[in-house]
């Protein structure tokens, strides 16, 4: 056959595309369960790390089942939607794009040595792309127990430093409510005159030099996401005070 004819070219391309597409589709389908498993275990690892449990990815599921006692999907009014599994069904990025009243937010409750911790999922925007993470609050729903952050494309060495241990460490024991009981969150602040972050009552942590916008993203993400949980908190508090 004439290899320079248009017919031959189209025939060749056609066969090539069908062949390669089926190989790729087959591989992707076969490997998908394992890839999903990795992603799921990593999520469990991240959730557990906020309450100080650092496990390898293989052990994540066992530890997760042991320490996480409740998984709640909260509606905007603070009530629990039983039909939704927050771990597998909720994608916070998609939730935030929905209409206000259709949004659901995941809340994980961990119990370690009979202490309760509330773990809230975070999601916001850094300098280049999405940033996300988890924040765990002690049973007073005010004191931060631990955080974990991750990002899609922040600058390595600058914004990407938010995933580093020393930065996450500085959030520990900070309070998210001020003395009047109003939510203030935690501000990532340039030059807060407290580089070692010894003052735990100022609602501030020291920023990373050169990553102001990523830091602001962290500030906003913590405030905005926790804000979504206030209705639920009010309900819980009422229950407590009624007792």
């Amino acid at each position: 056959m004439n290899r320079d004819s248009n017919f031959y070219t189209f025939l060749f391309v056609g066969i090539m595309i069908v062949g390669i597409a089926s190989i790729l589709a087959f591989t992707s389908q076969t490997l998908k369960p394992m890839q999903d498993e990795n992603v799921k275990n990593e999520k469990m690892q991240n959730i557990l790390s906020t309450v100080g449990i650092n496990v390898s990815r293989d052990e994540a599921e066992v530890s997760y089942k042991r320490f996480i006692t409740q998984e709640l999907a909260l509606k905007m009014d603070g009530s629990v939607n039983e039909k939704i599994n927050p771990f597998s069904d909720l994608n916070l990025a998609k939730e935030l794009k929905k209409d206000y009243e259709d949004q659901h937010f995941p809340l994980y409750v961990a119990e370690i040595d009979s202490e309760k911790y509330y773990i809230i999922e975070l999601r916001g925007t850094g300098l280049w792309d999405a940033i996300w993470g988890y924040i765990s609050l002690k049973s007073d729903f005010n004191t931060v127990n631990g955080v974990s952050f991750d990002h899609k494309g922040e600058t390595a060495g600058l914004g990407a430093e938010i995933t580093k241990e020393w930065f996450k460490e500085s959030f520990k024991d900070e309070k998210i409510f001020n003395n009047e009981g109003r939510l203030v969150g935690i501000t990532v602040l340039k030059g807060n005159n407290d580089p070692n972050n010894n003052d735990k009552g100022d609602h501030e942590v020291d920023a990373i030099s050169g990553s102001t916008i990523t830091g602001d993203g962290v500030t906003d993400m913590i405030y905005e996401r926790i804000n979504n949980y206030l209705p639920y908190l009010t309900i819980i508090n009422e229950k407590v005070s009624m007792r």
Partner: peptide, 23 residues
């Protein structure tokens, strides 16, 4: 076909890379 050889290269390379990525 000589006229589309670069495209064929690209398709072959990128599919192989996609396979590596998946694995």
């Amino acid at each position: 076909p000589n006229r589309i050889r670069i495209i064929v290269f690209l398709v072959v390379i990128s599919s192989l890379v996609a396979l590596v990525d998946q694995f």
